[in-house]
Amino acid sequence: MPEQFLWAMEVMLNGLMAGVLYALVALGFVLIFKASGVFNYAQGVMALFAAMTLVGLQKGQVPFAHLINTIFGTDVHKFGWELAPWLAILLTAGVMVLFAWLVQRFILQHLVNQPDIILFMATIGLAYFMEGFADLMWGADIKTLDIGLPQGVNAWIDETTFNLFGYGFFIDNLDIAATIVAALLVVALVLFSQYTKQGRAMRAVADDHQAALSVGISLRFIWVMVWSVAGFVALVAGIMWGAKSGVQFSLSLIALKALPVLMLGGFTSIPGAIVGGLIIGVGEKLFEFLVGPYIGGATENWFAYVLALIFLVFRPQGLFGEKIIERV
């Protein structure tokens, strides 16, 4: 097979894997938008906060250590324990539920039936507050995430493709793990939203807050539930991205990677987030591979948005979004 074709295949496969990672971030946005019509600007910061909390709990870091030491003149930094990854993940999920409750209690509850733009603004404020809070709580240093995720080239794929084509494909084990986790997550979320009472209630709230209230659905409970699930999705995204780069403040910028995915897949569709992620991942990687060398490279960031815009022009509601019908 021609070398160029094999390379393009490899780039495409890696694009699919990268797309899964983008989709993981986009999923959190979709969940909250679906349930409350809120575009949650804080989703990227939630991933950062969740990942920092995970590492902090796992390594036994004392939260707010700098503040405590400054006020009391102490010198405490560590509790002296190291938690098992599963326990740390479980505890972090608990923290994200608590966070969801706090958001509902102190922000959303006061903004019921306010215009969408007000809710959006509230999430901008929340994002910046959380960033500062995370800094105060866990510090700004880069933390190594070590929960046993595999990393590096997958030897089996490398060998098999080499034997077949004379060129070994590079696929990162971390990307394979992310794909499996994302697949499980999506199946669970789809089953939850389609086949459970709470899931149906969530969709009802998304359609109309007041109508949902009138049939006895607790808005508070649904919002806490949705923000909790989105917090858990943020935790998964934070783990996958944090494993690549260490857990640090730039993790909040992964939200930028989710925006074209949302534009393409629609803000209300879980499968849309996945398919959108895959299209963006493959599209940007192939464009960089085929066209990038002729125009100086570094095309991925902007090309993802161009691709999303093209889709937007033809399908404003996104690939899988609900069709927008306004009755007069």
Binding site: K257, K285, G296, E300
Partner: peptide, 15 residues
């Protein structure tokens, strides 16, 4: 091999 800010995704460059 340019990498766009912030540089969290560099798969193309390393391939």
């Amino acid at each position: 091999l340019p990498v766009d800010h912030p540089g969290q995704e560099q798969k193309s460059q390393w391939l």
